[in-house]
Design a protein around this nucleic acid. Structure first.
Length: 801
RNA sequence: GCGGAUAUGGUGAAAUUGGCAGACACGCAAGAUUUAGGUUCUUGUGCCGCAAGGCGUGCAGGUUCGAUUCCUGUUAUCCGCACCA
């Protein structure tokens, strides 16, 4: 009896669809479970095995939860705006809308062939007008609430994609899309004030269930530091040079100041700087370097002293020289620092190179050799002298600074405001109008969506202008406030916009009056379990948590955090152990596996290959092992008898398996859940026969992993209604242990024998049985008994001398 | 430099609060079935050793009757951030 997986899989996929087996119900009294997987970017390459692993985890959990009686929302959609599609569209001279629709159709067909239990009736697409209407609505709300601003700053610009990138999208100085070097450019661009939410993004982490490393990475990204702002007078002016430091306790050790080359005070006092030509030359040199180069030349400190300008130390009135150097960044703190070479290694290196004094203010290190950053007794520090720990020195210094009006406590974040714009076609148009009289005015809410004009030519301009700027009928408009002539903003939103709130739309995907009905949000939110990749932990997750908190503040969503629980799936590496990539030729196409072995084998294998959270290399021969398993499951029908009970032989095994599989699924240990089913299968074949009840239990447990073959067996053997609507099996805790169990017997901690004892044996009984064993008796013969113990169900250890 | 992780057979990996290291699977070997290949089935498989026995979870110590698990030190690899003041 051969299992024809091709026919069976197509058949069951159709049946599930027709019976709406996976449709989430609105207005239900049932307990809800909202399982979310990161919706894919529908690229031209089609589905990757990584997608399959990413969805298979919560796929299994969702199927189990439905069988447990939950109302499950397990949705899918398309994160379809973005540069990749647009670049492909330009290359092939096809409209990005068409490219997107083709790719979505391809992905959909592929996902359906794997048999995922998504609720397709809630499918969303970020490029649909009735979806991005609400993306624009959220943007306008942020605009109205002062979270949107424009600023002319140095931005990360990708010369190849001709687009401004956020810090997050240009990590390591490379464009996240095309990997070319990013350059710094002065440009007026849009920002979202995410830093206003920095503290809440941090404290919110205490209320959610994310893995520790995910939290750590977000904490690190937000990068909160506590310190002080201190104002140094510029000698001979009324100007204050404001700096930020985390070590105000070392203020008496300051021997020079450093400003970022771009610091505005340099131009303001250009006339007083005797060597301004030299300064200009240095600045020009710095501007040529990319930020990446600047941060790579860690060892070699460069800089120029500002002749004729010096600062005054506010606590002791000493005059100190000022330098500009590119190891100080304009983008962090105030763009200027107080340098304490004795206790900061970077300052120390700079001081050594430029022959500047080094004054020790904390004892404990050898400042001739290197800076000392540790704790110790304060010296050369006036009112701080004698204090011995950092905390009280900082507290004392802050007290004095605040008392004398010289500075104050302050907090800084590494996270910067979110550069929120693209000069490209394939994104949500930013719904703002520039009016010469009224300034920036939001597009009226009732005019949303502001749709992308349908154009032939969507190639980016060479000057960093959006292609939309070339379309007069789009650009020219009237000001909604004064009715005068005005121009539309032509930048579009970055790819991360649509994905920052998509989970909300799943709760009510077709609503035309608000982003989602509050009652439905109230029922479904928050997301109970969100699975995805590590690469989205700092960008997508922080962005969407920010949007969500804002939406909470304006009353649009019922809870403050979007995701109650987060898990991470590990990468699937190529068979050679390297990351899969087209250039290495080690990419595995999941549909090849479906064609050759069936969807159930693919699904089982990606979960069986190892710990769900770890990366693991693909192995074709292990796939065959899973194929063998599925075939052996199918062949259970050949040893089926007609009993409707558990057999005596297998009752404990089945109870154990029900317990283990259920628990393992909840703990993301899909690999050991499958292993437990394999063990049970081996036991069944050893027993030589299976009852109808046993078969029903077995296929129900396996159903979330391998839904097609189990449904087919269920139908062929007439074991009841569709498994998708069956009940998850229960177990009897009393029947999970065998009456007689094997335990280890150790003498002096070394394994010497194994004996059988009754499961409920007490210490005395177990020890008696152990000592009765001939090998053990020989081992302890004639020796003094020091200690003996029995660990219930595990082992006996007898210590003798 | 900061933060996080990982290290177990030939391979992917298992191992409740410290309690039989290597479950499960791959691979390999031998055998059975098959005209042959493939499939399927049976048996064996951590290392050394003929055996008794010994050795084994990156390395070196420690705590303990007992350590893959806890502590101290150390090495290697991977990931994220990074002249962050």
């Amino acid at each position: 009896m051969n299992y024809d997986f091709k026919t069976a899989e197509a058949k069951w996929q159709k049946k599930w669809e027709e019976s709406e087996a996976f449709k989430a119900e609105d207005n239900s009294d049932k307990k809800k479970f909202f399982a979310l997987v990161e919706f894919p970017y529908p690229s031209g390459a089609g589905m990757h095995v990584g997608h399959i692993k990413a969805y298979s985890g919560l796929e299994v959990t969702s199927r189990k939860r439905r069988m447990e009686g939950f109302n499950v929302l397990f949705p899918i959609g398309w994160d379809a705006f973005g540069l990749n599609t647009e670049n492909y569209a330009i290359k092939t001279k096809t409209h990005p809308r068409k490219v997107t629709m083709d790719n979505v159709a391809h992905f959909t067909a592929q996902l359906k062939r794997v048999g995922f239990s998504f609720d397709w009736s809630r499918e969303i697409n970020t490029t649909d007008e009735d979806y991005y209407k609400w993306t624009q609505w959220i943007f306008l709300k942020m605009f109205d609430n002062g979270l949107v601003f424009r600023d002319r700053t140095l931005v990360n610009y990708c010369p190849s994609c001709k687009v401004v990138l956020s810090n997050e999208d240009s990590q390591g100085g490379k464009c996240d899309v095309c990997h070319s070097d990013v350059v710094q450019r002065a440009k007026e661009v849009w920002y979202l004030r995410i830093t206003a939410y920095a503290d809440r993004l941090l404290t919110g982490l205490d209320t959610v269930d994310y893995p520790a490393n995910v939290k750590a990475q977000q904490v690190n990204w937000i990068g909160r530091s506590e310190g002080a702002f201190v104002n140094f007078a510029l000698a001979g002016t009324n100007e204050k040079l404001r700096i930020y430091t985390t070590r105000p306790d070392t203020l008496f050790g300051v021997t020079f100041m450093v400003m970022a080359p771009e610091h505005p005070l340099i131009d303001k006092y250009a006339e007083q700087i005797a060597n301004f030509d030299e300064v200009k030359a240095y600045r020009a040199e710095c501007a040529k370097k990319t930020e990446f180069e600047r941060t790579q030349l860690v060892k070699d400190k460069t800089g120029v002293k500002l002749d004729g300008l010096c600062a005054v130390n506010p606590v002791n009135g000493k005059e100190i020289p000022i330098y500009i150097a590119d190891y100080v960044m304009m983008g962090y703190g105030t763009g200027a620092i107080m340098a304490v070479p004795a206790h900061d290694q970077r300052d120390w290196e700079f001081a050594k190179k430029f022959g500047i004094d080094i004054i020790e203010v904390i004892k404990g290190g050898d400042i001739e050799k290197e800076a000392y950053a540790g704790d110790g007794e304060m010296v050369n520090s006036d009112f701080l002298d004698g204090l011995t720990d950092k905390k009280s020195s900082i507290a004392k210094m802050l007290e004095v600074l605040e008392e004398r009006g010289l500075g104050e406590k302050g907090v800084q974040y590494k996270m910067k405001d979110w550069a929120f714009n693209r000069q490209r076609y394939w994104g949500e148009p930013i719904p703002i109008i520039h009016c010469p009289a009224c300034g920036m005015v939001g597009v009226p809410y009732d005019e949303l969506p502001l749709t992308l004009p349908k154009v032939e030519n969507f190639e980016p301009g060479s000057d960093g202008e959006s292609p939309l700027a070339k379309i007069d009928e789009f650009v020219n408009c009237t000001c909604p406030r004064c009715g005068g002539k005005a121009k539309r903003e032509t930048d579009t939103m970055p790819q991360w916009a649509g994905s920052s709130w998509y989970y909300l739309r799943y709760c009510d995907p077709h609503n035309d009056t608000c982003l989602a009905d509050p009652e439905k949000l109230n029922y479904w939110m928050p997301v109970d379990w969100y699975n995805g990749g590590m690469e989205h932990v700092t960008r997508h997750m922080i962005y969407s948590r920010f949007w969500h908190k804002f939406l909470y503040d304006i009353g649009a969503v019922p809870c403050e955090e979007p995701y109650a629980k987060r898990s991470i799936q590990g990468l699937i590496l190529g068979p050679d152990g390297d990351k899969m990539s087209k250039s290495k030729g080690n990419v595995v196409d999941p549909l090849d596996v479906v064609d050759e072995y069936g969807a159930d084998v693919l699904r089982t294998y990606v979960l069986f290959m190892g710990d769900y959270g770890q990366s693991a290399p693909w192995s074709d021969s292990s796939v065959k092992g899973c194929k063998r398993f599925i075939d052996r499951v199918w062949n259970l029908q050949t040893i089926l008898n007609d009993s409707e009970e558990y057999s005596e032989k297998l009752e404990t095994g089945f109870n154990k398996a029900v317990k283990k599989v259920g628990e393992d699924i909840e703990n993301l240990k899909y690999n050991t859940a499958i292993a437990a089913l394999m063990t049970l299968l081996n036991d069944i074949y050893d027993a030589g026969s299976i009852t109808r009840k046993e078969l029903k239990t077995f296929i129900t447990l396996l159903n979330p992993f391998a839904p097609h073959v189990t449904e087919e067996i269920n139908e062929v053997q007439n074991l009841g209604s569709m498994l998708a609507k069956a009940q998850w099996p229960t177990y009897d805790p009393d029947k999970c242990v065998d009456a007689l169990i094997e335990i280890a017997v150790q003498v002096n901690g070394k394994l010497r024998a194994r004996v059988m004892v009754p499961a409920d044996a007490d210490d005395a009984a177990a020890l008696e049985i152990a000592k009765a064993n001939a090998d053990i008796a020989a081992q302890i013969e004639g020796k003094t008994l020091i200690k003996e113990l029995y660990v219930k169900g595990r082992l006996v250890n007898i210590v003798v001398r």
